[in-house]
Amino acid sequence: MLIEQLINGITLGSIYAIVALGFTLVFGVLGIVNMGHGEIFMFGAFIGVLVTTTFGLPLWLAFLAAIIVTAFMGYLLERFALRPLRNHQGSNHLAPLISTIGVSIFLENLSHHLFGPGNHPFRTPFAEMSIEIGSVTVYLVQIVIFVISLILMAALSFWLGKTKAGKALRAVAENLETASLLGVDTKKYITLTVILASAMGGIAGILVGMAFNAVTPQMGLSMGLKGLAIIILGGMGNVKGAMVGGLILGLAETFIVVYGDSGYRDAIAFIAIIVILLVRPQGLFGQKTSDVRR
């Protein structure tokens, strides 16, 4: 029982981590909270429903389609909702936040329109398959989710830490002017960041669809707020913080349902924010004085 719950918590937590990574990348590089991220995630989930359930095509195609569509949405978001507000002297620093809230409302309504309201089932061929290890039941879906999340996190960490482009992205996150003086085309990397974050959101959308077998137009909002909670928990703009924060939230939610009151499940994230802001305002992995921000 305990081990099964642990597995459930880790599965959920690894999805949260992927969503939070998208948030934290955009925050780290652009210094803004992208409120449209949750809705891009939701679109990823709906693309998954379309490909697997409506058209009955294989799962890998769903991933591919979701990545392409959400990456493109990320491009449009940056190009039309964020870029026009940048380098615009006198524009309020809250303007990009408001702009992404606008995008999120637009996308939620659009999905109502395109896909219809209510619950949409997400069918995976191996939804019911499970493995018994002793007395513990592990669903194949959980393993798939966990493995994909792990690969994604490892790949991102490697890319940021070891590759030339990843280092350039970190330089852009740290200081836009310095990065451009070092020869980095900062505009390109800003766009790339939003595209990358959005594609990760799209992948997370499919993972959630698989995990809960349900997709709704409203799922973006709650996931968006949780992603925000996680990056506050882990430290704004911090990659490791997003991963660990996601896992903590996933485990906490799972265990509150089992050992506490399931009604508080969605409140956990926000209780965590309040506690962390009181105890460690910079987040678990954040630096006290963040010179990362411009």
Binding site: K164, K167, A168, R170, A171, E174, N175, E177, T178, A179, L181, L182, G183, V184, D291, V292
Partner: peptide
């Protein structure tokens, strides 16, 4: 340009700073 106030990348290692010098 080596700007006023140095502007090194504080969150990157000394080696990574040097590598970024050769970025282009």
């Amino acid at each position: 340009l080596v700007p006023e106030g140095r502007q090194i990348l504080a969150g990157m290692t000394v080696m990574e700073n040097l590598e970024m010098g050769a970025y282009h």
